[in-house]
Structures are given as structure tokens and as C-alpha cells.
Design a protein around this nucleic acid. Structure first.
Lengths: 225, 225
DNA sequence: CGGTATCCCCGTCGATACTG
DNA sequence: CAGTATCGACGGGGATACCG
């Protein structure tokens, strides 16, 4: 931890706790509902486990996170102070979506995309029973090209190997377009019309699929003219 | 600049530009109205000039700041994108004032306090003519103990030597209490009653002095129970 | 599953001096 | 006033391996 700012300004005092690399992204993950170490890791794939561990300890010392253990089960939970960082994260995201438009190829991580989509499945909107969606990103490297999302009444799993169940809908998409749709930079229908995303399957499922996922809060932020 | 986060999440993309040390404090200074290099320095006394220069360049490259030159005059101005960071800074400050309560002695910088107060003088509230306030912080080191603020119709200057004009009001205060009042952690009247701040001078001036300064936006944030 | 331990590089930051 | 130049230390953090 570098020295503080030696300023009484509340912004400075906040940044003394929050300005280190990864810190607010850990908070974001916690605010998104991840509680377990390895779930946090999945949302922060490029972060080393030792650094994640360190950040969690720092956040705990700062009173932002509490470490709960029940038997072998360990969970990290935002304190009240931590939950009140949500407006900060939201303001940052709202700004980012408006003013940091262009994504590099490096930002297009299919693992992260599927992880993010899977935790935003709206189970009330998905038909009953087990629904399997296959995603295929032709422009992605072979290893991360094909994905299967298995949705049941109260769960959603992601696999990078065919789990064997019959596929209900197949989504064939440019990875970049899929990410852009997910971020709200464009709509499903725009991408479909443009031919950048193909949805294959029964008519009703094809039509309803966009509603199976609750859009990110940033999707609705108006973009600058 | 460390590597990016390799995430498409808008929060990550924002933090790639903003999470380095000092960056958002420079934005705060610009949002507070400073435009010139050395004014920015006054608001960021512990930041080296080279680092400030570097940050300004980074902010310019990020489209957050524009460098305007007119002849010899150089001014840094927030772009639209930069102005839209105000909600981020405000959210951080609101959080900081609630959850980073305790200030270290290192955070109590009289220079910064006077600089901050002087730029928040409400000239419509100060009596006409030249008003000189002397501040004295008995608990501060000799060099930074005594200050004079000279307020005229359209200007406010701070000196650390007696400018020679007659002093209208004298404020004798614990530095810590003065900072806490300024931050809104306590009110003027609380500090006066507690005897941590003494105001000496004509009755009307003593009574009105708190209103000569427009309180920081964070002063009104409710503190946690 | 839930982390530590270790290692080492390289960038950041701070300090100070200096310039047009 | 508005910065640049230089320099050195420190430690942040990335990678990887390992442990209960």
C-alpha cells in the first residue's frame, strides 16, 4: 500500500482504500452476488489468486467486506459500507459504457461472457424443463469456440464441452457482436438484422431467447450522440 | 500504465483509465474549478509536478481533459466526458465521508484547508469592502500556525504572513476541529459550544462568519448511525 | 475447494533539480 | 508560470507452484 494522500478531502480518503488495481472490480463481483473465492476468481480470470486473497484481506481491514466461515464453507460478504459502494460502481460503469466505447480484442473473453450471462438468466422467462443453448463463436480460437448453457428451473450451468443433452437453441455469433449486445451497445434485433448473430431453433424459442437474460443495468444507459 | 483488465465490463474499462494513483483527484481538482497547472498543484500539494504533468497527459489522451493554450496562458479543462465523471467523484466523496471517518494527523494540512476555504467564499454573504480573517491554529507547527484571508468583492487571497490590513475577525481553532467543521463532520455551532473554535470580533461578524463559506457538498451527507 | 508461498521483474512514484 | 529531466527504491502484482 503506497502512502496515503495526506488530504482530508473525502474523495482522497476514499481513494486511499479503493484506488489500487483490481480493488473496485472485486467489489463489483461481490455486488453481483459472488461470495465464494473461486466464484470471484471466475469473474476475475486474469487476477492471480494471491492477489485476490490480498485484496479481500485489505477490503476486510477497510470494513468493506466480511469473511464468514461456516464449517468448511467460506463466504465473502459486503458490509453495509461495502454495499454503499454500489453507487460508485454504477457511476463508473455508466461512465465507462458511454465514454470508453471501443473494446480491444483482448477484452473479448468468451469465458467471462458466458459466466456473466449465466448469472443473469431470468428463470421466470425460460420455458420449464431443461433448456440447452449452444453458443458458437466462429471467430474465437477453437478452445473457446463452443459453449453449452444448461438452464433448469433454478439453476444455470455453463460447459465448454457438449453435456450431451439435446440442444434447444443454437446461437451462432461473432464474439464481438455478442459482447456488444450483452453490454447494450446494440440490441439483439439490430444484430440479428445485420446478420452478425444467428439464432437457430423453433420459432418461439428463437423469438423469446433475448428475454431469457436480464440485461445489464448499463445496457439502458443512453449513449452519447 | 499496467496492462488492462481484459474485461469487457464497463466498470473495468473505466478503471483502466482511472484507477491509477492521483488520477481521480486531478479530476476532482478540475471539477472544483482549477484550470492552471500551479493551481492544480496547490490542490494537490503532495503530488510531484512531473507526475501531475504525466496524469494530465494521460487524461488528455483518454479524452477527459483538453489542454487549451492562448498565447502563454495554458488551461486544462474537462471535456464533456470529464464533466460526466462528476457523479463518480461525488459518489466517492459521499462514501468517504460516511465510511472513512477518522483522519490521521497527516491529513490535517492547513495549507490545503485554507486553499479549499478560500475558493468557497460566498462573496454575496461577506460584507462589502475588504474583510480580513485571521486564522490561528495553536496546535499546528509554527510555520503553518497563522493565516490571513483577505476577502474583497470579487476575490479572496490567502497569506501566511500578516498582510498588514486590520483584522476584522480572528478565528482561533484546533486544526482538527476546523477541518472537521469544514468537512461537515460537525457544525460550527457544535464546535463553538464545545470551545474547540473561538471566533473573536464584532458580534455581527462573529455570528455571520460561518455563512461566508459555501459548505462542501459532502457536508450535508448524513453520517451513519 | 480455498487459499499460501515464492520469486522476480519492471513500472510507479517520490524527490529534487533544472529550464525557457 | 509551466512544466521537463533525472534518478533510485520500493513494492505492486503477474506467474507459477504448492498445500490442507
Amino acid at each position: 500500500m503506497p502512502a496515503g494522500y495526506h488530504q482530508f478531502c473525502p474523495v482522497s480518503k476514499a481513494m486511499e482504500l479503493l484506488d489500487e488495481r483490481w480493488t473496485l472490480l472485486v467489489v463489483r463481483e461481490l455486488a453481483c452476488g459472488s461470495e465464494k473465492f473461486n466464484d470471484l476468481r471466475r469473474g476475475l480470470p486474469r487476477m492471480s489468486p494471491s492477489l485476490l486473497s490480498k485484496r479481500l484481506q485489505q477490503l476486510a481491514r477497510s470494513g468493506i467486506v466480511e469473511r464468514h466461515t461456516e464449517g468448511k464453507d467460506v463466504r465473502y460478504v459486503l458490509t453495509t459500507a461495502g454495499q454503499e459502494l454500489r453507487p460508485v460502481v454504477e457511476a463508473l460503469g455508466a461512465w465507462g459504457v458511454r465514454w470508453v466505447g471501443e473494446l480491444g480484442d483482448e477484452d473479448l473473453d468468451p469465458t467471462l461472457l458466458l459466466w456473466d450471462m449465466h448469472r443473469n438468466v431470468d428463470h421466470t422467462a425460460v420455458p420449464d424443463g431443461r433448456i440447452v443453448i449452444q453458443f458458437s463463436f466462429p471467430d474465437a480460437p477453437t478452445k473457446t469456440r463452443d459453449w453449452w448453457m444448461v438452464i433448469t428451473a433454478d439453476d444455470a450451468d455453463v460447459c465448454d464441452v457438449d453435456p450431451g443433452y439435446p440442444v434447444a437453441v443454437m446461437v451462432n455469433a461473432s464474439l464481438r457482436r455478442m459482447v456488444e449486445v450483452w453490454r447494450g451497445d446494440m440490441t439483439w434485433s439490430q444484430a440479428l438484422v445485420a446478420g452478425d448473430i444467428d439464432v437457430l431453433g423453433p420459432e418461439t424459442l428463437r423469438r423469446d431467447l433475448p428475454r431469457w437474460f436480464t440485461p445489464s443495468p448499463f445496457a439502458s444507459i443512453p449513449r452519447p450522440a
